[in-house]
Nucleic acid binder design. Structure first.
Lengths: 343, 343
DNA sequence: ATGCCTTACGCAAACGTTTGCGTGTGGAAA
DNA sequence: TTTCCACACGCAAACGTTTGCGTAAGGCAT
């Protein structure tokens, strides 16, 4: 088992100094052509690769982006990561991914760990607990130490930094509008508890659409789901003897759960009840009937976030003080769950 | 914007040497109690955190595990990552994730990048292209440089290292047995092209089950799908005027696609045709009808893989020469798609 | 007063790089 | 023969740690 070869070893073998080897590999004119060729041949033979750690220490940068997301087993977040990776790799950056598991503590630990030398900057979607706790000191501290942070999806208004979001309210409004334009009058919304920023925003968009259409908003058509793991029974109870003709769900799981409940109740989708979800994942695509949904373009978000971060990392000082918020357009992906029934 | 504080800065402020600070923070008896307290107070005040990069360089290890998977937007792989993360974090390891995007070149690049200082060892599921190309030099080289590699799921028989797999053939056999025990006679299989190891193994298990039941295997009931993105139409053609009473699919997507095709053809699941898939993902769980499936216990695989790797990383030299293969038990998750119809 | 031991600290090397600058050697010009 | 200039290379510092060992100061015993 041959260990990794270093400059020092090459230098020793060739009986030259370390600096000569280093310069030779970089084709420095300081070094004679002859020596250069010898060194390079040797380096290739022994498969020399510069040690990233040493380079990081010397350059005081790691060429690594830290991504912290609330859940790793989550379609939307993985699409975002896909986008980040794409841009990062193009620009020679590595990506480290950590999940906070929606735990505040784990978010802090991961961030501190990566901040102490492992990453140059962060792309972050905050944990539920963090949103609830409203404690952002770890983010502020990281930024204070000169490491840029880009927030996406679940952002924090109070923290001043680059952000990538979708216009949640607008997306929800568009979706609701679509239901209204189909002639639906009794549109229920399945949403989250208020401290989840995106849930609240989407609810607002729903309400805005109703008002614009002068459809009375009715408290009893709003369900704020607490326990996401148990949403199906909550939805079942909620829908029981409620005469709705459409459902807008603020995420994919709620939409699917609603569809299942309706199916059990013998209702037809879209004839009896139309459904629109949020987040264009595989569930919406493959469900029968396939579900109309508001696409968040996760990969795009990742791409934009990575670009913002790398701009900050490589930008001149002028740009550093300026923070941008990129708003990704949502789009309504129309599928069977809102197909107009003929006649 | 205060930069990260280093030992040197603390030393300067307190007018002591760097080594004194370092030792004081480690509560060395070499340092007087008085100095120790002073240093620690100062360190806490300035939120000192040792620089991981410097430590990595000094210790010649990074406490980081590199995970390379074929796809990041993939439920099964993310569950595996979840398992890896769990164990890794418990043991103080970081996890770097890279996706090869099923490209051989990207797999090599990622591996070399991480191997040159960023990770101490690898957990890897090889890209399709790599399996097709049968070029494993990057894996061998990495191991030759003293970095342990654990292969999972899509493994390579020719490479000698730790492995975590499921018994694909057995899982498939169990699934097929279940269909047979339900009284199904004309069981089709939707599988992949042969060079995908898991596809082939699962097909073998299917055939084995048929033989054990003395059901004739019929070539025309085997569909090897080439273009996974277009599987629905392939399946549709395949199923057209074929009188099958059960379908075994070697992955989740094929199972769902089959279910959709059957639905379009007006067939009832499970009454007309029973379906079993492979991989217990969200699609199988939420589909109507919910799909019976062979669970691979992805998180378990991740846990085991991480344990194997960390054992190698921290084990004494005796253990290093010995390679283990952990076989994770599959289990059949019975759902509606194979419910026995009464009578 | 001298010697010795303990206490409390600093020095320096090491991990693997990069790079500005200093320097020895050779040849050519005067 | 002396002087000068390239050329080709080496030295050393720096990045932030850790740690074995050396050492100054002080106290105590003789």
């Amino acid at each position: 088992m041959k260990q990794k070869v270093t400059l020092k070893q090459i230098a020793k073998e060739l009986d030259v100094s370390i600096s000569t080897v280093s310069k030779a590999l970089k084709d420095s004119v300081e070094i004679s052509l002859d020596t250069r060729q010898k060194v390079k041949a040797f380096a290739k033979l022994y498969n020399y690769k510069p040690n990233n750690i040493a380079l990081s220490l010397k350059n005081r940068k790691t060429k690594t982006i830290g991504v912290i997301i609330p859940e790793i087993v989550h379609h939307f977040f993985t699409t975002v990561i896909g986008g980040v990776e794409k841009v990062a790799n193009e620009k020679g950056y590595n990506v480290i991914i950590c999940s906070s598991n929606n735990s505040f503590d784990k978010e802090v630990i991961n961030m501190e760990m990566l901040a102490s030398g492992s990453a140059d900057g962060f792309i972050l979607s905050v944990a539920k607990e963090t949103q609830l706790k409203k404690d952002y000191h770890h983010i502020e501290e990281t930024m204070n130490q000169g490491m840029p942070v880009v927030l996406f999806d679940r952002i924090i208004d109070e923290v001043v930094c680059d952000k990538v979001i979708i216009d949640d309210a607008k997306g929800a409004q568009t979706a609701t509008n679509h239901l209204l334009s189909l002639g639906c009058k009794r549109i229920a919304i399945l949403t989250t508890v208020d401290y989840i920023s995106v849930g609240k925003l989407r609810t607002n968009g729903y309400l805005r659409a109703l008002r614009a259409y002068e459809v009375p908003e009715r408290e009893e058509l709003i369900l704020k789901i607490e326990d996401i793991d148990n949403c199906e029974s909550e939805i079942s109870d909620f829908l029981k003897d409620k005469d709705v003709d459409a459902i807008f769900a603020v995420n994919e799981l709620f939409a699917v759960a609603a569809a299942k409940v309706l199916h059990e109740q013998g209702k037809n989708i879209p004839k009896d009840v139309a459904i629109i979800g949020f987040t264009d994942g595989i569930l919406s695509k493959h469900f029968i009937p396939s579900l109309t949904t508001v696409s968040q373009h996760g990969e795009d978000m990742g791409v934009q976030a990575a670009k913002l971060l790398i701009d900050k990392l490589e930008g001149d000082d002028a740009a550093i003080e300026e923070y941008r918020t990129v708003i990704i357009d949502t789009s309504l992906v129309q599928r069977q769950s809102t197909k107009k029934t003929k006649g």
